[in-house]
Nucleic acid binder design. Structure first.
Lengths: 225, 225
DNA sequence: GAGTGCCGATGCGGTTGCTGATCGTCGAGG
DNA sequence: CCTCGACGATCAGCAACCGCATCGGCACTC
């Protein structure tokens, strides 16, 4: 397992390096943001351990840059900050885990292993299909540059379809995940809401992202229609 | 997105439920370990939020039981303990993330979203014979680059033939698997539907994937005709 | 009380599944 | 090579179903 540590504090950096090498990892170290980004671009690491406060380029921006290039290498963020919003921000930005300094090395190891076990994340923080994108955290949907307003129910329906983009999703599945498991009503509500969705994300743009699969359910086109 | 909360403290459980429902999740609650395990087995959740200290069956055991059954639903663990080894244990046991009480709801949300984002659903293999391919999950059939629309019955007939590509499949087998085990009708339906299939996947392309084996049934050419 | 989101009911129209009848084809035996 | 019977292909037509739009009422919020 090959790791990249991005950490400007020399003592912390070497301590981490020694500990992780002793655990059998192959470790490289960058002491500032730009170097870290460069190494991450040029090499393929199994995971990156990254401080937030970095000279030249913050950890946030580093993750953002990688994710923008569709590089989904797992990133574990270290930070001296402890405001809760920092953590939420880091995760929504595409970090895979977050540790507040001071942390225990044992915990770092466990979280690192958990992150490695999961491997490369298949999907970014923002779901997207072609020019259609949905940000679960911001509760925002856009078609290209146009922001689209959805009601809560419409939003969860689209979110579920987007998470399973490309699959034909049965109405029973939709009822269970978007409505309630014990929902007893008519499956017709789905048709109604699919209709609403299409009226907002497809028709005005002459697209067909939400496809009907007769007898099977619905499918969201992976290319957004 | 459908969640299961396993939490014995009623106030905590309802607080979580309300907060998550307000965020647009579909939420179910179990107040003890065995109930939680039962629900998790019977239903397909997008994620589980699970307390560690539970009456009847600890959160650890719950995860262990699920993982032993090859159920990889993402699990986010909550705990009042704060010993570092607890956290390491939980992650090594197969939990996907870990929060120590008291935690902030914003952080829970962010971590939950991170966990959901990772949700890997192993895609069933795509069946293919030559340039003919069938994707059971997407319910899509293509000949080369051309997408072909099939009705549900046509689709399951082709799927069955493709799963047994190269074999001569008797009509009795087909009736049994594509129609109903107790189907009492005329075996002529098969001939009719084989006709429909050929009209869609063979004739327009001048191919002969669906071959008649007189007296024995039908065979799908492994090379797609 | 106006506005918004949600959901059940109803009705229309196209699609699908199936049947029964007819037509075509294969191959063994004369 | 021809005949005939059995098997398979095709066709038209009907009934049930499915997807979709629309309307009206209910609950909640502002």
């Amino acid at each position: 397992m090959r790791l990249l540590i991005v950490e400007d504090e020399p003592r912390m950096a070497t301590a981490l390096q020694r500990g992780l090498v002793a655990e059998g990892f192959t470790v490289e170290v960058a002491f500032n943001g730009p170097d870290g980004l460069h190494l991450a671009r040029e090499n393929s690491y199994d995971a990156i351990v990254c401080d937030i406060m970095l000279p030249g380029l913050s950890g946030y921006r580093l993750i953002q840059a990688l994710r923008a290039e569709a590089n989904w290498v797992p990133v574990l963020v270290l930070s001296a900050k402890d405001g809760e919003y920092d953590e939420a921000d880091a995760l929504d930005l595409g970090a895979d885990d977050y540790l507040v300094k001071p942390f225990s090395f044992v915990v770092l190891l466990a979280r690192l292993r958990a992150v490695l076990r999961r491997g490369v994340r298949p999907r970014p923080a923002i779901l997207s299909c072609g020019d259609l994108s949905l940000d679960p955290a911001a509760r925002a949907v856009r078609r290209g540059d146009t922001e689209i307003e959805l009601t809560p129910r419409e939003f969860s329906l689209l979110e579920y379809l987007m998470r399973r983009a490309g699959d034909a999703v049965s109405k029973a599945d939709i009822l269970h995940h978007v409505w309630d498991a014990h929902y007893e009503g008519d499956a017709n509500v789905i048709e109604v809401y699919v209709g609403y969705l299409r009226r907002k994300i497809d028709l005005p743009f002459g697209r067909h992202a939400v496809q009907t699969v007769r007898g099977a359910g619905y499918r969201l086109a992976t290319d957004g229609g």
